[in-house]
Design a protein around this nucleic acid. Structure first.
Ligand code: FES
Ligand code: FES
Lengths: 130, 130
DNA sequence: TGTAATGATACCATATTAGTATCATTTGTC
DNA sequence: GACAAATGATACTAATATGGTATCATTACA
């Protein structure tokens, strides 16, 4: 079981690098510095752009920069982009139409743990990683 | 992203049921009560048996019972049986031989979050779910 | 207008998860 | 002892998620 997948991890490193450089950074530079396969890196950056975390510039001299301050980009956000929402572990029984949902202790406990994990992930920002 | 997979979930429910019944329970009974596919349920129970969480009895009147008190069976253990260790999200860069390992802030942060998740998972026992 | 960059999209490979099928072994009951 | 009722072991299949490639379109600077 892993909390963080590869694309989240790469994304984090890319963001950290871009945050340090404080400038527009092109894919090629990131690829060289981080050793991630170029097409994969491109895809990841494009996703971050779509998610509103990066801003992209096309054409010569183009690349990516952070859209907001690194203090305002949270681990939580990045994970959501690449790994979807946390907390989908609903009732698997009876095709998710469990009548028991309201009182189920298991469900409640798991939810509270998930909530706690989220709270932590929301506290880690890119600035704190640089 | 889901913290808990299906087999962990089924296992938990099965364990809760067995804990309540305080008796030897056969697969057929669990299948009827929980609505989980029979062969899948069997596989799960066998894994729990191997993991030392259940004890099995063969032959007529056979089935499964808890090996230890439900207070001493933790969510953490069950997850480990079906989902492996938590915390494998090491450095994906450079084929896991990152020279940077010692000082990497990202790594440290993630580790501390993982440790926290584990701490919580270790606190939830089957008795508290029944 | 050429070229250096990203955008969009479709595709492929591998791993993990979810589930099935089958036969062997043990054990209580007649 | 024979038989049936249970689990043990193991191998297989299907679906989904992850990790990654390939290709062409679009934009914008020089
Ligand atoms: S049994 Fe359905 S939500 Fe818990
Ligand atoms: S960069 Fe390798 S462990 Fe963080």
């Amino acid at each position: 079981m892993k909390l963080i997948t590869r694309n989240t991890d790469y994304a984090l490193r890319a963001l950290c690098y871009i945050a340090k450089r404080k400038n527009i950074v092109a894919v090629d530079e990131l690829v060289k510095k981080l050793g991630v396969p170029r097409p994969f890196m491109r895809k990841i950056l494009q996703q971050l752009n779509k998610a509103g975390i990066l801003v992209s510039y096309k054409g010569q001299g183009g690349g990516f920069r952070l859209k907001v301050n690194p203090e305002k980009i949270y681990l939580f956000q990045i994970m959501r982009v690449f790994q979807g929402k946390v907390g989908l572990s609903g009732c698997f029984l009876k095709k998710d139409i469990c009548p028991n949902k309201g009182e189920c202790v298991l469900r409640k406990k798991i939810h509270s743990i998930e909530a706690d994990v989220l709270r932590q992930l929301k506290r880690v920002n890119i600035a704190s990683l640089v």
